[in-house]
Write a protein that binds this DNA or RNA. Structure first.
Lengths: 111, 111
DNA sequence: TATTCATATGAATACTTTATCATATATTCA
DNA sequence: TGAATATATGATAAAGTATTCATATGAATA
């Protein structure tokens, strides 16, 4: 299974050495966030740029309350960031790890 | 947020383009698998080599039934592979994506 | 300031998931 | 073949989760 140069195997191995019980729990918590269609859709909606809540609702075709509940979970996990601009609250990806994690997942399911 | 050369940003961007509704569901399903402490612990237990069920139970300090139930989920998701050797069934990681995905997760929570 | 628009949040419900218990299956060995 | 060991699995209870509805908060504007 060649990884097409996307990562460096040695660095990967180093990253997963000596992981504490607590870190394992944190990891599970993190992945749990990605493990929901609605939240994954929100993250994808933000891949190409920031969006406010109304726009996210339109993309997902879901009601505002459901979306806001999930936005809160993503915010709490620091996967997305938010700022208010007038009446609207604008959301964006917090950092590039989100993209990488999802890309790795996509690469896996493609096989 | 420099990624220390662990991945190539262009390839990441390419991977997450044009993702269908179905692929999003599959992705959520995949991450759901990682989103459980027991399963993450099993995967870590297998990082340094294959183990049979009894050994996995010892590492996790969990009862055999609970472990087997989670092994089945990991097997079904093709994250681990198994083979029988006498009375024992030996499990190992199915491929390197597992390591990569978890390493990315770890990198994220470290910040 | 009253109203409207945008977002957040609490409570309730329906749905999912995990661990446990009991038991079944598979393999080895006496 | 019968007992022992290793693993798998079905059913159930307990815990967790997502969506919906109703309502609250916050900001802009008439």
């Amino acid at each position: 299974m060649e990884q097409a140069g996307i990562y460096d195997a040695r660095k990967i191995d180093h990253l997963i050495e000596n992981v504490s019980e607590n870190e394992l729990s944190d990891l599970a918590e993190l992945f749990k966030i990605f493990g929901d269609s609605t939240r994954i859709k929100i993250l994808f909606a933000l891949f190409h740029g920031e969006k406010n809540v109304t726009e996210i609702c339109e993309v997902l075709e879901m009601n505002q309350s459901a979306v806001s509940h999930q936005l809160k979970i993503l915010r709490t996990s620091k996967l997305i960031s938010s700022r208010r601009e007038g009446k609207a609250v604008i959301y964006g990806l917090a950092d590039d790890h989100v993209k990488t994690i999802i890309a790795m997942g996509k690469e896996h399911i493609e096989e």
